[in-house]
């Protein structure tokens, strides 16, 4: 089943043609990895999926991004609601300088949830969902910034889960973490696909190979090849994909 359909998506930053006609389908409850060298447009593409590029000066977007067949760039779309459906986890862990509890509850409060008991319940559920509950349940009121990097990132995932998104975008979520923390997050991701559709940008090709079901290779603003991850890493069709993943350039 297809969750997000991208059709002929172009994006310009001023003179810079950053995305050149991307056509890509993101499948429901699968992990799709976006790989490619720096500046290839993979992060830019990721950000178009929840309109995080909107505030960039001089940005111009054409083409379509359909979430459940609804154009997210349509005139009547409420960006707040879109981002509730399509959550995002960033490159370096960025919990807010408040308590663990308030971090997890932040999104709920944005969307107007006020009942204390309900918030308590959802906070616990999302912290469990992000596999961090056992580590923090006794210190929910302590500052989130006192957590380790890996815990912070899982808290950020919990924060995203709290608003019950359907799609989770991850922009190099483990690039600032040590191998053990990375492993925990990767473990978590495969758990997440039971409920969520995950799109992850990663510089680590082994990571893409380990965790994703589908992989798309980006180069110079174009989507070069998209296929099952096994296929991409065993026998890519495009020689540019082959050259990139075997380290022959980049």
């Amino acid at each position: 089943m297809t969750k997000i359909v991208t059709e002929n998506l172009h994006l310009h930053y001023g003179e810079n043609h950053a995305l050149r006609g991307i056509n890509l389908n993101i499948l429901t409850n699968k992990i799709t990895a976006l790989i490619g060298p720096s500046g290839c447009g993979k992060s830019t593409y990721l950000k178009t999926l929840n309109r995080m590029n909107d505030n960039v000066p001089n940005v111009k977007i054409s083409g379509q991004v359909l979430l459940d067949s609804e154009d997210i760039y349509g005139g009547t779309v409420d960006v707040t609601k879109l981002r509730k459906k399509v959550g995002m986890v960033f490159q370096s862990p960025n919990p807010f300088p408040m308590s663990i509890y308030d971090n997890a509850a932040y999104g709920l409060r944005i969307h107007g949830v006020k009942k204390r008991l309900l918030i308590d319940e959802i906070v616990e559920r999302s912290l469990r969902g992000a596999a961090i509950w056992d580590e923090v349940k006794d210190r929910l009121k302590t500052p989130a910034l006192a957590l380790s990097g890996g815990q912070q990132q899982r808290l950020c995932i919990a924060r995203t889960l709290a608003v019950s998104p359907e799609v989770i975008l991850m922009d190099e979520p483990t690039s600032a973490l040590d191998p053990i923390s990375t492993m925990k997050i990767e473990e978590l991701m495969s758990e997440l696909t039971k409920q969520y559709t995950v799109v992850i940008v990663t510089h680590n090709m082994q990571q893409a190979a380990r965790i994703s079901d589908y992989t798309a290779f980006f180069l110079l603003g174009e989507m070069i090849e998209y296929d099952e991850t096994n296929r991409i890493f065993a026998a890519p069709k495009n020689p540019r994909t082959e050259n990139y993943i075997t380290g022959r350039f980049g």
Binding site: Q206, A209, F233, A234, A235, I245, T246
Partner: peptide, 9 residues
């Protein structure tokens, strides 16, 4: 080297 693609094959 954790080979992929042609190298892996």
């Amino acid at each position: 080297q954790q080979p992929v693609a042609k190298d892996l094959r």
